[in-house]
Every structure is written in structure tokens, then in C-alpha cells.
Amino acid sequence: MVDTPTIDETVLLPRLKAGDQAAYAQAVEAYSAQLYHVALRMLGSEAEAEDVLQETFLDAFKNIDRFEGRSQLSTWLHRIAANNALMRLRKKRPTFLSVDGLTGEHDDGNGSQVPKQLYDWCCLPESELLTEEARAEMRAAVEDLSDALRVVFVLRDIEGLSTQETADVLDISASAVKSRLMRARLALRERLTAYFQGAGPEETR
């Protein structure tokens, strides 16, 4: 979870709407690292994450008059960033899930969720769990989730947004967030279990 500087949005928002450049810089300073991180985990590409970051703030500042303050500014910025990232994914994989498909409940594209891998890797030493290779496998596993599951997992478990915040960002129900988070976690557990079983000292099952 990214440590976001404390910021009083009720003070900042009127200044943003008034076109105060110092307020713009303050918003950028407060939220840019977190939004970049979301885009990077969504897209897996530093160059694309940077593009999304720039587009997000350009869109936000251009449309700040239309922001009514019904959600937090940070939620609104996350929504713009997540939608920008999802649109890029859709262009790369046109036959895959569309942004509109995010409102569906059963289209995660990650198949059966019944656990198959039953190797208990919890007790592996940190030196094996935290290798660079393991980290790369963790990132690849997230990138292989369907868009609908990945965006929920990134916002909830990597960025630490609450269920309701995630629901607000994606404009889906809290129960849809919970259900997708569960499916994402199970898919990642399956993948990491297979990986650590291969990486572990010996097979115990």
C-alpha cells in the first residue's frame, strides 16, 4: 500500500476548480505514485503506466469542473486511471473482456475455482518466498488474471483500497468486488502453489 500524503480534499478541490496551479501540483504529489503503481500492475509495462499516469491527470484537470465531489477525489482519480488502463488492455486484447463487461457478474474468464494444488508452502523460508524469481512469478500471475479480476485484486490487495472504495472506483457492487477478489486470490494461490512446489526443497506430497 502506498503511503499517500495527508491531504484535505475539501480545501484542495475548490482551489483545483479555480485553476490554482499550486493545488494541481499538490494533487499530483499526493496521488501520482499510487496511480502509477495501479497502472503498472494492471499493464505490466513501465512505459504504458507512465502514459496512463499522464493521461489520468490531464483528463482529471480538464474535467475538474464536472467533478461534483460525490466521491473522494482520490477515488475519482483511481477511476480515471483504472478506466484508462482497462481501455489499453481492451485494445491489446480486443476479443477479451470489454470495460462494459465489468458490470457482468459471471464473466471473469478465469475458469474453475476449485483448488487443485495442495502443496503446503507456508513454511518455506522467507529466502525462498522472496527471491527475485518468485517476485517475477507473482507479477506474471497478476498479469495473467482476466481484466475483471486483475483490476479488483490490484485495487484491493495491492493498493489497499477498501471493498467500498474499489466498488466506487469500478462502478460495480460491493458483492461483485468480494466475489471477484475471491476468484482472483484463488487463481493466484493456485499459480503460486504450483510455483513454490517446483521451487521447494522437495516434494512433500
Binding site: V2, A33, C122, R135, M138, D157, R189, L192
Partner: peptide, 15 residues
């Protein structure tokens, strides 16, 4: 292992 999976991702320090 599900709990550990979530923990590993949460512990990854944000860039």
C-alpha cells in the same frame, strides 16, 4: 496458502 498469498502481495513494498 490463500492467506499467505495475500500477505506476500501486501508485503511487496510499493515502488
Amino acid at each position: 496458502t490463500l492467506r499467505k498469498t495475500v500477505l506476500l502481495y501486501r508485503e511487496e513494498s510499493p515502488a
